[in-house]
Design a binder for these strands. Structure first.
Length: 866
RNA sequence: GCCGAAGUGGCGGAAUUGGUAGACGCGCCAGACUCAAAAUCUGGUGGACCUUGCGUCCGUGAGAGUUCGAUUCUCUCCUUCGGCACCA
């Protein structure tokens, strides 16, 4: 053992050893229990960041731990390699997205290897490779056959800066999730996956994912957004033709149907222009509709958003009251939700109320709050609570909660409507007008229409000999060699689909591909998937709570429908780790500052450019733009992988945000150094000694204490990793044990003493091995072992070592701690009570007050109530 | 506005089932080693008070409640963070 701890030397050495001996490569072993541990694969941006380091460190501890527990652990890594940054970088640096991507992958792979993660690198995959995406195209064809994939013209979220379409999930508060620019509505022909077919099932199974954080499940449920209500058909007063004689609406408040005094259609609703044509309102209506089409989606989400609308010049009939009510179109009605039409009940819906007040529309109260009556003329806001039905004919006097059912039944019987559910979730638009993605395997033939590429012609290769266009427009549509083709059906001239698939399609099945990454007869080898899937533990950022995790759940259902897998849920347990945060530093003149843009003159920190005092800002998620990032490479150089890992695990439990602290990292480094020095001191003395394994009864004093502490620590660390993934407390337990060891000064060097120390040193190396693997290997080697610590099983505690012959009993008077004493472990309860009552200090507190009650918690506490 | 999570020393965080609040680490203070410093090692470190004791009182965002006993359970409120937000 070297005198000095030199992480760079030992880390390189062990990484080579693991790699040369292929220690993390696994295969299916039917006799052995499998454990599939997966961390979300990264986008190959060029460099790993602290978020990756944290995520993958957490995963690696679990993988290594499970491996020591005897599981056959699948722990793969790969690259989510399609996507826009590659195109942008290619344009900026005059290179090709493929080259940029593959270079980045090489760089990041090297970094991950330097961290010492236990991946089975033989399973590495990159989603941009044809071997990968050809199977995604294959599944697309199958989905097309089953009408699970379809094409339609629709209004889509369009980002002007990315020049592409976004799924609803990818629009955040009206802005593009990637670039933050406003999203506009644009009408385009698009490919969709019919996710809505599974809305009910996805929702149902949300409650059957006990290993998922409640937060994520709630977010998914809200996203799916199930509403139970009714569809009611409102006849059009003067229909223009036979096709459209009524307008269906969706409502969750069918009890208020008699209070519906006007109808609102979304501006894009086809009936808006159809009904207003030829009326006096036509010009105003079409002007409004056009204006609305240009309105930013971002504006709609603003608080100040003004509700506006126009009368379209047509009316319909309230089916229950028979009254004629006007039809409006307004900006708050959404074409994508329900039927795109709203029956407006101003008395009982705040939004409708505001609209009615603004345009002077009639308000009819149909639910009266208990014990009072509402006057439409003086109401200040809509009444949305429970009450009694009024102005509703035969339903008057009924509680509205009952009318909800009764009216629904009545509508159904009279053939005016039906009970139904509506979902907020919409079909997944997967078309992207981008180059760097998997081509959608479809052909447009002038004669035959849309024709799928025959299975034998797969993959539809993404051409690599392209010139990237400035501005970021996809080069595919103008690439004749790609576009021009012949129709598989009629042989005539045809052109290829030039849209590529959303990259979230790739990440919806990569975990299955890992099971048999080289498989060339299908998406994956069914036997391998049957063995490894589902993923036992998935770890990643909460930012994917909806997007990736919901898509993956959906895609798994598709695979199941196709008979390719026999499970519904891909991820049994999910851990969403917190963000890595750091304070921001800024200068009033130069904005955010990096640490090396600051000079410290001893008293205050100043901007290196202008000398202004530096402002210490909030602690925020590390981001390049805020310049509060820490480069993992710098840490690796300065401290090595083990210290970096140790700090990431020690500073906070995984689900919480981690606040970066340079001093904390330093503390971790010091701990490893202390342990190193301790081993260099002791290793010679215990080298030829076996670890103590006899009966603890033969030990006493500090020796026995150390032996017990060792076993207590095994229990604690095992529990923390196994039950809760609380590595921070596992590490502090090991630190405690080490404090015990370093304070251990035996009176004699009896053999037992050395054997107990040897036992502690062996176990400490084992307990640390998932956390700081290189370091632990080196300790293990120093102890005279010749095999890798990886070959050893996880230690187990012996019950006899844990037994205590003395127990500490605390004594309370009226719930306040007053005294404590120890007793033999076999002392009976009565004796403990007596001893507590007899205690001098307790007597002082009781004085002459009568004792009302004595509560005894076994082996722990006595509380005397006076 | 709705839903969810969190709030504990100077700081990160412990306290797993209602039973010794502050483990472990950082920082700070004192001491040892040193010509000196760094590194390292040892000890101390929630607050207040005094009679300096194995002392008393206070203390887990605020207030109430349940309980012999509450960081933990219940209610109300405050703050912070996250998600959703015209979803009919």
């Amino acid at each position: 053992m070297e005198q000095r701890y030199d992480p760079r030397k030992i880390e390189a050495k062990w990484q080579k050893y693991w790699e040369d001996n292929d220690l993390f490569a696994v295969k299916e072993e039917p006799g052995k229990q499998k454990y599939y541990l997966l961390e979300m694969f990264p986008y190959p941006s060029g460099k790993i960041h602290m978020g990756h380091v944290r995520n993958y460190t957490i995963g690696d501890v679990v993988a290594r731990y499970k491996r020591m527990r005897g599981f056959n652990v699948l722990h793969p890594m790969g690259w989510d390699a399609f996507g826009m940054p590659a195109e942008n970088a290619a344009i900026a640096n005059d290179t090709h997205p493929a080259k940029w991507t593959y270079d980045n992958i090489d760089a990041m792979r090297a970094q991950l290897k330097q961290m010492g993660f236990s991946y089975d690198w033989s399973r590495e995959l990159a989603t941009c490779r044809p071997e990968y995406y050809r199977w995604e195209q294959w599944l697309f064809l199958k989905m097309y056959e089953k009408e699970m994939a379809y094409r339609r013209e629709s209004f889509v979220n369009w980002c002007e800066s990315c020049l592409t379409v976004l799924a609803n999930e990818q629009v955040e508060a009206g802005m593009c999730w990637r670039c933050g620019q406003p999203v506009r509505q644009k009408k385009l022909w698009q490919w969709f996956f019919r996710v809505t077919d599974y809305a009910e099932d996805l929702l149902l199974y949300s409650d059957r994912l006990p290993g998922w954080p409640e937060k994520v499940i709630t977010m998914q449920k809200n996203w799916i957004g199930k509403s139970i209500g009714a569809e009611i058909r409102f006849p059009i007063a003067s229909p223009v033709d036979k096709d459209d004689t009524e307008i269906p609406v969706f409502t969750t408040r069918q009890d208020t149907v008699c209070g519906a005094t006007f109808m609102v259609l979304a501006p894009e609703h086809p009936l808006v222009m159809k009904l207003s044509r030829g009326t006096a309102q036509e010009a105003e209506t079409s002007g409004f509709v056009e204006r609305m089409a240009l309105q930013d989606r971002s504006a709609k989400s603003l608080e100040s958003f003004e509700k506006e609308g126009v009368y379209i010049g047509a009316d319909c009939i309230n089916p229950l009251t028979g009254k004629k009510i006007p039809i409006y179109t307004a900006n708050f009605a959404l074409m994508e939700y329900g039927t795109g039409a709203v029956m407006s009940v101003p008395a009982h819906d705040q939004r409708d109320f505001e609209f009615a007040r603004k345009y002077g529309l009639e308000i009819v109260v149909v639910v009266s709050p208990p014990g009072q009556s509402l006057d439409p003329a003086t109401m200040q806001e809509a009444f949305t609570g429970e009450g009694v039905m009024v102005n509703s004919g035969m339903f008057d006097g009924m509680p509205n909660t009952r009318a909800l059912d009764e009216i629904a039944r009545h509508l159904e019987q009279s053939n005016l409507g039906k009970k139904t559910v509506s979902f907020r979730l919409r079909d997944w638009g997967i078309s992207r007008q981008r180059y760097w993605g998997a081509p959608i395997p479809m052909i447009h033939c002038n004669r035959c229409g849309i024709v799928p590429v025959p299975e034998n012609d797969l993959p539809v290769l993404l051409p690599e000999d392209v010139e990237m266009l400035p501005g970021g427009k996809s080069p595919l549509p103008s690439l004749e060699a790609f576009v021009e083709t012949s129709c598989p059906d009629c042989g005539g001239a045809a052109h290829r689909e030039t849209d590529t698939m959303d990259t979230f399609v790739e990440s919806s099945w990569y975990f299955e591909r890992y099971c048999s990454p080289g498989y060339d007869r299908g998406m994956f080898d069914p036997a391998a998937v049957a063995y490894w899937m589902p993923v036992d533990q998935y770890i990643g950022g909460v930012e994917h709570a909806i997007l990736h995790l919901l898509y993956s759940r959906y895609y798994t259902r598709v695979l199941r429908e196709m008979g390719l897998v026999d499970f519904k849920e891909p991820f049994t347990r999910l851990l969403t780790q917190g963000m890595v945060c750091k304070e921001t530093l800024s200068c009033p003149e130069h904005g955010f500052l990096l640490p090396d843009e600051i000079k410290d003159d001893g008293e205050v920190r100043r901007c290196i450019k202008c000398g202004h005092q530096v402002t210490v800002g909030r602690i925020e998620k590390m981001s390049k733009s805020k310049k509060n990032v820490v480069d993992p490479n710098v840490l690796l150089d300065k401290y090595g992988a083990d210290t970096t890992r140790l700090f990431c695990l020690f500073a906070a439990p995984p689900e919480r945000d981690l606040e970066w602290s340079e001093q904390g990292v330093d503390g971790g480094y010091r701990f490893l150094n202390r342990v190193w020095r301790f081993y260099t001191d002791w290793v010679r003395r215990v080298a030829s000694v076996k670890a103590f394994s006899g009966s603890p009864e033969s030990l006493d004093g500090a020796v026995k204490e150390l032996y017990r502490k060792t076993h207590q620590t095994i229990v604690k660390v095992t529990d923390d990793i196994e039950q809760r993934f609380h590595f921070n407390t596992a590490i502090s337990a090991v630190m405690e044990m080490f404090n015990h060891m370093s304070g251990f000064e035996p009176d004699d060097a009896m053999e037992d003493t050395l054997m107990v120390m040897r036992c502690a040193m062996d176990n400490m190396a084992l307990l640390l091995s998932p956390i700081v693997p290189h370091f632990a290997e080196e300790l293990w080697l120093a102890l005279g072992n010749t095999t890798s610590i990886l070959e050893l099983p996880w230690p187990t505690a012996s019950d006899s070592a844990l037994e205590k012959e003395e127990l500490l009993i605390v004594v309370q008077v009226n719930g306040k701690l007053r005294s404590r004493f120890s007793v033999n472990a076999d002392t009976d309860d009565e004796t403990v009570k007596e001893k507590a009552l007899a205690d001098e200090r307790i007597q002082k507190f009781i004085s002459d007050r009568p004792i009302k009650k004595v509560i005894l918690v076994k082996n722990k506490l006595v509380n005397i109530v006076v």
